[in-house]
Structures are given as C-alpha cells and as structure tokens.
C-alpha cells in the first residue's frame, strides 16, 4: 500500500458537468426502472413504466446540450468526439479504454432507445397501444436498459480514469453513480406519480426498490471513503462534508420510506399506496438533492 501523490492540474469540470452527471443518472435510472417495472408482469405497473420512459426523454435531451456548452468557444467541434479529423488519419473515433470516447457513442445509442421508448409510451397513453408490438417491446427495453446502466455508471468511471486526486484513488465511482442514479430516478418517479393516480399502484414498490438501491449506495459511499482514505487523499473531502451529509440524508430518507412500505406489506397490506403523501414528496426531493450533492462532492473535491 502506498500513498498516492498527485501533481496534476484540475480540468475545471464544474456546473455543466455536474448537471450532466445528474440528468444522465436520472435519465438512465428511469429507463432501467421502466424496464424492470414492465418485467413485473403486472399490468398495474404499466402506467408507472410509461412515466419512466417519458421522463427519461427530456432528461436525456438536455445531456448533449450540457456537454456541448461545457466545451466553451470550441462547442462547434463537439462532433470531433466521434469523427477524427486529423489530416491523413480521418475516420471514426472509438477508444474503448477512454470512457469519454465510449460514453459519447453510448449517449447516441441511448438517445435512440429513449426516443423510441418515450414515443411508444406517449402513443400508448393516447391510443392504448404503442408503436412497438408487445412481444418486441421487452427485448427492446432490455437492450436499452443495458445501455442505460452504462450511461448511469460510466460518468463515475470517467472520473476515475484520470490522474486526479480522489477520483483516480478509488474504483467505486461507477457503481456509486449507478446506485445513486437509480435511487434518484425512483424518487423522481414517486414525485411524478402525483399526477397519474392510475400509477399509484407502483408507488410502494418504487419505495422498496429505492430502499435496495440506497443500501447499495450506502455501502459504496463507505467503500469510497475507505479507498480514498487508504490513498491518503481523504482530507480533500473535509470541505465538502455538508454535501456528503445531504447525500447521506437522501439515502436515509429512502431507507425510511422503504422500511415503511415493507412493514405495511408484512402486516398484510397489498403494497398499494393510495396516493402520494407529503412525506413522499419531501423524501423524494431530499433524495434528488442527495443525488446532486453526491456528484458535487465528488466533482469538486478533486478540483
């Protein structure tokens, strides 16, 4: 074991990147949840699944906008991510070992899945049937969910694949961002179900799923602190402890909600929650703030 020493400059990835990580996590998390809800086989989960696919669309659309804005005056060269314009060596850019390179392609592919699934959900809501036949819908969603899992997690791996303090001192960021993105998406869906009473059947189930995601997130936060501590860069987290406190409060809120739901089931409840109560709204907002705070704490602690 050795202590990591870093002599790097910070890349100044700040607000645009923070919000990109936030929306990418939510969009991808929502897509995964929509797919899982569909796999429950219970038609009463379909309204919530449709909300999930619908909400993943705007959350995805904003991602390339944020990434392009982050390039500053070179924004018009955003497409150089995909096409190498080096004279004499032109062609497509793809470096499997560079998460930024893979991530750009993954975002394009994810955009396709999200657009089709959101359109399908929108049509389904209006006409009662989407564009994709049911038999194809599930495999399509599974493929989309695999890409979504990549989108939710690669942002963390991208930070680690650097020589920055904190980021490169740990290997948990990919998993951590995925767990937190899923938890945030569950909270977002719980909030949106307010406007779709027919989706309230899934509310308790979303809380329960959020509980599992939050257990994972908590475990990964602990491993994050252990790995960063072992590398000797823990002191960089000290100024950001208030943000970590918000992130942990979000996790705690999710766990309390999930516990309430599991208890209700154990006492013979159907698992159906009649509607969205005030505590759900408060907890959901807290969880979403936690998702943002966690990413902010990680991003800013290295720079």
């Amino acid at each position: 074991m050795y202590l990591a020493e870093h002599f790097v400059q910070p890349p100044q990835w700040t607000w645009y990147i923070l919000f990109y990580f936030f929306f990418a996590g939510l969009a991808a998390g929502a897509y995964v949840l929509g797919t899982l809800l569909r796999f429950s086989g219970d038609p009463r989960d379909e309204p919530a699944a449709s909300i999930a696919f619908l909400v993943s669309f705007p959350a995805t659309v904003i991602c390339p906008v944020l990434l392009t804005a982050d390039l500053g005056v070179s924004w018009w060269k955003f497409w150089h991510m995909m096409v190498d314009v080096t004279p004499g060596d032109t062609g497509l850019n793809f470096k499997y070992w560079s998460p930024m390179s893979v991530g750009v392609w993954a975002l394009v592919v994810f955009g396709f899945f999200v657009t089709v699934s959101a359109f399908d959900a929108w049509l389904g809501n209006r006409r009662g049937a989407g564009i994709i036949p049911m038999v194809l819908n599930r495999p399509f969603n599974v493929l989309g969910a695999v890409v979504a899992i990549f989108i939710a997690s690669y942002t963390g791996v991208l930070l680690s694949v650097s020589n920055q303090p904190v980021w490169s001192d740990t290997w948990v960021l990919g998993g951590l961002f995925l767990a937190s993105g899923l938890s945030g998406a569950a909270a977002l869906l719980a909030l949106l179900i307010r406007n779709r009473p027919d989706a309230s059947f899934s509310l308790g189930r979303l809380h329960q799923a959020d509980g599992y995601f939050s257990v994972l997130e908590l475990a990964l936060i602990i491993v994050f602190f252990i790995t960063v501590g072992a590398a000797g860069t823990l002191a960089r987290e000290v100024p950001w402890l208030p943000l970590w406190a918000i992130a942990v409060a979000g996790v705690a809120g999710s766990l309390v909600e999930a516990r309430g739901h599991v208890r209700m089931q154990a006492t013979g409840g159907s698992g159906t929650v009649a509607g969205v109560r005030l505590d759900t709204v408060v907890v959901s907002i807290l969880v979403l703030l936690g998702v943002l705070a966690l990413r902010a704490a990680v991003i800013f602690s290295a720079q």
Binding site: V8, Q9, P10, P11, Q12, W13, D70, L71, G72, V73, S74, K77, F78, H80, M81, D84, V85, T86, S98, M100, L159, V161, S162, N163, Q164, W167
Partner: peptide, 12 residues
C-alpha cells in the same frame, strides 16, 4: 482537432 473537453488536463 482539439475541442476543449479537458480530459487530457485531468490525465496529465
């Protein structure tokens, strides 16, 4: 060719 993504800054 560079588009200012700053990945190299994070890496060097």
């Amino acid at each position: 060719v560079c588009n200012g993504c700053r990945n190299c800054v994070a890496a060097c």
